[in-house]
Design a binder for these strands. Structure first.
Lengths: 235, 235
DNA sequence: GTACCTTTGTGAAGCTATGCACAAAGTGCG
DNA sequence: CGCACTTTGTGCATAGCTTCACAAAGGTAC
């Protein structure tokens, strides 16, 4: 109990590294499909779009799986990263909210591909309940707790309107869920020990807009603005 | 040209701060809707789920918009953050790929809300081209360059299958686009000066799975595994 | 077996981000 | 007007992340 971080770390893999492992995994899968047997950190780094020293340091946190002078065995590294990420087991995922986004997620191919399986779909709208989607009937939200329990769901994706998200989160947490992927544009309040990851379309657009604006300002060689004057005076 | 970072910084706002501004903006909009006129950094930090010192430092990068002893004027701060993010102007967004995900994005309410407007939809499938969606006809991908130019599109969202994404990126970049939001599960290769942000559903799930696995390991008090033995021996 | 080549794994340095703690600045009451 | 109280803005210490640079380790050729 000496070190308490934002995220649990049993053997001390940094969060920044964990966040990049899926990226490496994807690059490796691409190489494997093309029949590449071994890859150097340099080549893999290029494929993943990162610095090669960073890649090596990241991999070194998992163990020493490379061969000096040769590189990494693609299949073996895929296995090791998959195991570290917990993808060698099957994760049952429930999607709450079968609107446009929920449907897109349910149909999303890469979703099902590795380790993840859509095990339940929920909606509050009785017009949607019972509908068949990816070979599965949509359940009513009232069944949330019992179905989660019955089908061994351990990860919940919230794709509801913003107003419903916190309520859904409270219920699934009460049902024992500790991992939530939230697409609703709200900050979820959850107890310690529950992991929430947020995917937010408008946030990403806003960040792009910021940089786009900067680029536009530079191109047009726009004159110094009021605040900049003030700053220049201070300096 | 002294300092070249991954992202452009004209007046030096850290990327980490920029990434949080949309979060603050959302929290502030919530407060404004509830009629709150002023808010302290402490209260706003709670609403946004961050540390209050971090919030104050972030805001201090934009300027000195608070009043000591009082807090921040909600409307004024909304305006200042919006201006900094470039949301006081109108951004024309094109969505390429009108599958499940593309439709979800086009219909997504928060998308249109502040500063962003879906100005064009493209697809390669002639069965989809011509279809009406959010009051707009889907154009054929062949029209990409001309429509982007004609409608003043400055941000492109790629919601195509993975195989088509790089090709779409190349074309929109050639057409002058420098801001891309990529939903396809591939690493896009782009020239300097082009910003790409990536939203990846399976990456997020994999990160959740990692933490979920850690939690499960701890709960079951699972014994030390093979690699750990090896590590213990070395130590 | 030795010499040379390639590539990993990591110590160390530098850079960025976080959070504490407090001086400075404003409000409001008596 | 002065005093007590609140809250911002920021200097500073710490923690975390990235990148360089190189020794160590393995492969290959002869």
């Amino acid at each position: 109990m000496i070190r308490r971080m934002s995220q649990a770390r049993e053997r001390g893999i940094p969060d920044a590294t964990v966040a990049r492992l899926p990226l490496y995994l994807r690059a490796l899968n691409g190489l494997a499909e093309r029949g590449t047997a071994t890859v150097s950190s340099e080549d893999l780094a290029v494929a993943a779009g990162v610095n090669s020293a960073k890649l090596r340091k990241d991999l070194s946190h998992l163990g020493s799986y490379g061969t000096r002078g040769v590189g990494y065995d693609v299949e073996y590294l895929i296995y090791q990263i998959s195991r570290e990420l917990g993808l060698t087991q099957d994760w049952a995922v429930a999607i709450v909210g079968v609107g446009n986004l929920g449907r897109a997620l349910a149909n999303y191919g890469g979703f099902v591909s590795r380790g993840f399986r859509v095990a339940a779909l929920f909606d509050a709208d009785s017009a949607v309940v019972g509908e068949q989607l990816v070979g599965m009937a949509v359940d009513h939200i009232d069944e949330l707790e019992s179905v989660i329990d019955k089908r061994g769901v351990s990860i919940v994706v919230i794709a509801t309107p913003a107003a419903a998200a916190q309520q859904v989160a409270d219920r699934v947490i009460a049902a024992g869920i500790t991992s939530i992927l939230n697409f609703a544009p709200v900050v979820l309040t959850v107890p310690d020990g529950v992991d929430v990851r947020k995917v937010d379309l408008s946030t990403e657009l806003q960040i792009l807009a910021f940089h786009e604006q900067r680029k536009a300002d530079r191109e047009t060689g726009s004159p110094i603005m009021a605040e900049d004057w003030a700053e220049a005076m201070d300096a």
